[in-house]
Simulated assay, not measured.
Amino acid sequence: MSEELDHKKELAKLKRLAVEIASEIHDIVEDTVWTNHVKMPELAKKLYDAVEKANQYKAEHSL
């Protein structure tokens, strides 16, 4: 049971990281898109990678 809880905590951590990146994208779009649009491709890649990592972890541990 403890191992399952550890996996759920790790998945929550991975999801939180993805949400933080999405929040950063949201802030740029809402407030500074005209000056910080150059950051979007890098952030989009980071978000894509973070979501893929979370989904892979979820699948590997049957969560």
Rank of each mutant, 00 (worst) to 15 (best):
I28Q: 00
L47W: 05
I28C: 04
E60R: 13
N55M: 06
E10Y: 02
E24A: 12
E3N: 07
E4R: 13
Y57F: 15
D49K: 15
N55Q: 07
K46E: 14
V29Y: 12
K39E: 11
E20G: 09
T32R: 08
H37N: 08
D49I: 05
R16Q: 10
V51N: 09
W34D: 14
E60K: 13
V38M: 07
W34C: 09
M1D: 04
K39I: 00
S62G: 07
K53L: 05
A12Q: 15
P41N: 11
N36G: 01
I25K: 07
D31M: 04
E52I: 05
K46W: 01
L63Q: 07
K58F: 04
E24D: 15
H61V: 02
I21G: 07
E30T: 05
N36T: 03
K46C: 10
H61G: 00
I28A: 00
M1Q: 04
W34A: 14
A59D: 07
K15V: 07
K8L: 05
A44T: 14
E30Y: 03
A22K: 05
T32G: 04
L14I: 11
H26N: 12
W34K: 13
S23K: 02
Y57C: 00
A44N: 14
D49E: 15
L5K: 11
R16V: 00
I25Y: 09
V19N: 00
V29M: 08
D6Y: 11
V19W: 02
D6A: 12
A22F: 01
S2F: 13
I25A: 06
K9F: 13
Y48P: 04
E3S: 05
Y48K: 13
A44S: 14
W34V: 09
K9V: 08
H7G: 00
K58C: 12
A54N: 02
E52R: 06
P41M: 04
K45A: 14
E60V: 09
A59S: 07
I28G: 02
E10G: 01
V38S: 12
E4M: 07
H7D: 06
E60I: 07
V51S: 00
T35I: 06
L14M: 13
K58R: 15
S62F: 06
D27P: 00
V29R: 08
K15T: 08
E3V: 08
D31H: 12
K45E: 15
L43T: 04
E30R: 06
A44F: 07
H26G: 04
Q56A: 15
K39G: 02
W34P: 05
P41Q: 08
Y57L: 05
H7T: 02
S62Q: 05
